[in-house]
Simulated scan of single mutants.
Amino acid sequence: MEVIILAGGFGSRLSPWTSHVPKPLLPMLDKTLVERVLDLLPFNEINKVIIAAGYRVKDIETYFNNLDLEFEVIVQPEEVPLGTGGAIANCRKHITGTFLVINGDLITSVDISSLIKHHRNSKVLASISLFEVDDPTRFGVVELSEDKKILQFQEKPKLEDALSNLINAGTYVLEPEIFEIMPKGAHSMERDVFTKIAPLGEMYGFEFKGYFVDAGTPSSWLESCRTCFNDNRWNSGTNVDGNWIAENCVISDSEVKESYILENCEINKSQISNSCILSNSLIESNCILSNTLVGENVKIGKGCNLENVIIDFNSIIPDGWKQSGGMYQNQ
């Protein structure tokens, strides 16, 4: 089976990090984000992965050329933004039969093998993973029949209008005949295709429990790190008092809580909570960091107070700097 990973966005909500590294290659604990998606795949059922990429394509190609994987990886460029449906259609030449589609920024516990099995038994055009949430207003919502067929597909409804609390969880199994239904050019799979085939009884809903996080914003990036850490989805690094700490880090006389610190970092006499610090960064004494993303090769001066900030790579933050929200860009 072929797999399409949708990774065509610019990752602008994680800027300025993504001005240096495409979002699929950002490190989440000891693996890149896209490798977190690959971890979901049942390798014995997969022969080819197509990454639909639209930003810094050469970086992604170079990265995968240097990996030894059990399946072929093809990076399919997206010259202009095509939407989710257009990106899938752009990969059509690589598809030979039933295929899998996964959004490229998901941290999820969905069982892909079970999804594929249920799809094959259902004999429909499309099967999608479904996850129950308290607030469905940011997602595509479905109405499900007793036999798990999707009756309606509703994109980002108001809370009072939502058909249910079951949302589209970003993983699909599709039959190649679906290409004949898809419009040409840029379009949305959710708005332009699923809404057409659901009333025809050609969509199956696969509910799963566990977790589902879209790692597209600073807050959800931290939630994704926490989810991977708590689910032991890491092979290197150490659990130190509920924090994930990579190799060659020096943490002196500091209070660190629920944070994720990559290799070769140094933290001195500071308080760090719910933050992610990328490699080769230095935090001087008497700093307070909370809900903050620190880029690579950053130096934070003494006595800084940073809350809900995303810090650019290679930044040098002066002593005493205070900031709440927004980004700190390298000067």
Rank of each mutant, 00 (worst) to 15 (best):
M1K: 00
I4V: 15
A7L: 01
A7M: 01
G9P: 04
H20A: 10
P22G: 02
P22N: 03
L29R: 06
V34H: 00
D39M: 11
L41D: 01
P42H: 07
N44P: 04
Y55C: 02
N65S: 09
N65H: 11
N66D: 12
Q76Y: 06
P77I: 05
V80F: 10
G83H: 10
H94T: 03
T98I: 08
V101I: 15
S109N: 04
V110K: 07
K117D: 13
K117W: 03
R120Y: 09
N121P: 01
K123I: 08
S129Y: 05
V133T: 07
T137V: 13
T137H: 03
R138E: 09
E143G: 14
K148C: 04
Q154G: 13
P157A: 08
N168L: 15
A169Y: 09
V173S: 10
E177S: 14
V193P: 04
C225I: 12
R226I: 08
C228T: 03
W234E: 05
S236V: 12
N243H: 10
E247G: 06
S252E: 10
V256I: 15
E258S: 15
L262P: 02
L278P: 01
L282C: 08
C287K: 13
L289A: 14
E296F: 02
C304L: 08
N308M: 01
N314T: 07
S315M: 06
W321M: 10
Q329E: 14
Q331T: 06
